[in-house]
Design a protein around this nucleic acid. Structure first.
Lengths: 264, 264
DNA sequence: TAATATTGTGTCGAAATGATATAATAGATA
DNA sequence: TATCTATTATATCATTTCGACACAATATTA
């Protein structure tokens, strides 16, 4: 992270190019060690974390802005990314955030003029649209933005303290993920291209938060028909080797049409 | 609709109190004559229709703004209202809209100053959040806003020409309605307090767009357990009288927790 | 070759589903 | 009053699905 003083100048020049009052925040899910994780940023000088987010350029669509944020933080493009809720309460700010702005400002030592522009921008009321992304954690390379020191995967079951309403945003994202899983085979995106049935089951269990019966899970998933079976995985373990599967996106498209929900 | 000149002055004074760049649009569903309908506004002097929408006051939450729009157009409060998508493409304007602004301006004959403020406001890029509402059509009293001449229920199967992307917004709302119906007994809100089983079935058929089998529908719906059975409806017809049912909101709350979707 | 751990598939009773049949009944008709 | 008609409520039944569990298959170790 090069010269912070120059960063603040860049930011000051960018601000007029942003749509005022609207931001995007990305809940980027990953899956590792049988745990569902979220990519979080740690703000400089503060023991507080935040979702990767950003602003929308005046000549950029909101979806593109979210895509850009995702790519900047993970290096990944063209993966599952979908808006799930827009947060428009009045009190979308808190004391810790104001505290943070002060510290940032002190750190940056910008000119009076620049300082005012930047403070005004961040103190404004923002409506934010939440996106959730599903990534293969092994393909992503987390990168902090210029406001942050660290960019790390954190387990959803033990989240650190988060700014403003970001904990609520993550909660909502997880709820949506569960619901979407109920009518779409969405979770696949979190796994590498080839995976075993038990990998998939553990993932579903992590998302749904409850154990599933092994043989019945296999029966149901296979019946949905969006998995292709490949060669076996010889892991070296002293037991029967599991088949590898991959995701058949053609079948998935068909399912998208019908859904797999409750039928009246 | 009183003096239009004074209306434009009111608008000019309101504009500084709105959050810039963000609006809400309500897809207000009703159900009548076995058809799903949407409440639309007809703009003055133009053969084009629009969703009821509005802007968000700086000291108002986005949800409250949507609630306000709904109440202003229907006289109804505290009914089902939920955001379903936020539309953030760049090209959220079209020629017919610009045409419309010109006509409105000509009609209003505002001062140069007022004119500039109002034109600038409407020509700005807006991100809009779509809400869908479910109303008992017989309780609502449609009221045009000051920009519109008419406020009418239109069948979703034969929609008139709509401004900008409002046709797409309605499409999305209907899609969401179908999906939500798949895991929540949501449609109830469209019926009067007491209704027969065949009323409910016709409503579900209208939303889902396909016929359902009568006896099985009854069995399944009753098993979900959120209906209370009441006295029979003596319509005077020469046949067995159907029971009347009402919606049990306590049971509904329980269902909200579990959902009724696909289970892995 | 036997033992072990894990996977793939089969089984079985219970429940849900779709299709259809039957019984109940409010009024009309004779 | 008895019968007929239209519609509703419920029963039936073969088929499918579900959850729980059994059992066979198999890659490696002992």
């Amino acid at each position: 992270m090069a010269d912070i003083e120059s960063q603040i100048k860049i930011l000051k020049d960018l601000i007029p190019k942003f749509l005022p009052g609207h931001s995007v925040d990305c809940v980027i899910f990953g899956y590792e060690d049988k745990e569902l994780k979220v990519l979080l940023l740690n703000w400089k000088q503060m023991d507080i974390w935040a979702l990767p987010g950003g602003f929308i350029f005046k000549d950029e669509s909101m979806d593109d802005a979210a895509q850009r944020v995702l790519e900047e933080r993970t290096g990944l493009s063209s993966i599952f990314l979908k808006q799930f809720h827009t947060f428009g309460k009045i009190q979308r700010s808190d004391h810790s955030q104001q505290e943070h702005h002060k510290k940032i400002m002190a750190l940056m030592k910008p000119s009076k003029q620049d300082r005012k522009i930047v403070i005004d921008w961040f103190d404004h009321r923002f409506i934010t649209t939440g996106y959730f992304a599903l990534t293969d954690i092994r393909k992503a390379t987390p990168r902090p933005d210029f406001l942050s020191e660290k960019c790390e995967w954190k387990s959803v079951s033990e989240l650190p303290e988060l700014i403003i309403d970001h904990a609520e945003i993550i909660q909502q994202a997880m709820h949506q993920l569960k619901i979407q899983l109920n009518y779409l085979p969405i979770g696949i995106s979190l796994l590498p291209e080839k995976f075993t049935m038990i990998d998939l089951q553990k993932l579903y269990e992590a998302i749904l938060g409850r154990p599933l019966e092994r043989s019945n899970f296999q029966r149901k998933i296979l019946k949905l028909g969006f998995l292709d079976r490949h060669e076996k995985l010889m892991s070296g373990a002293a037991n029967k080797a599991p088949y590898l599967y991959s995701f058949n996106s053609t079948k998935y498209e068909e399912l998208l049409e019908e859904g797999i929900g409750f039928r009246y």
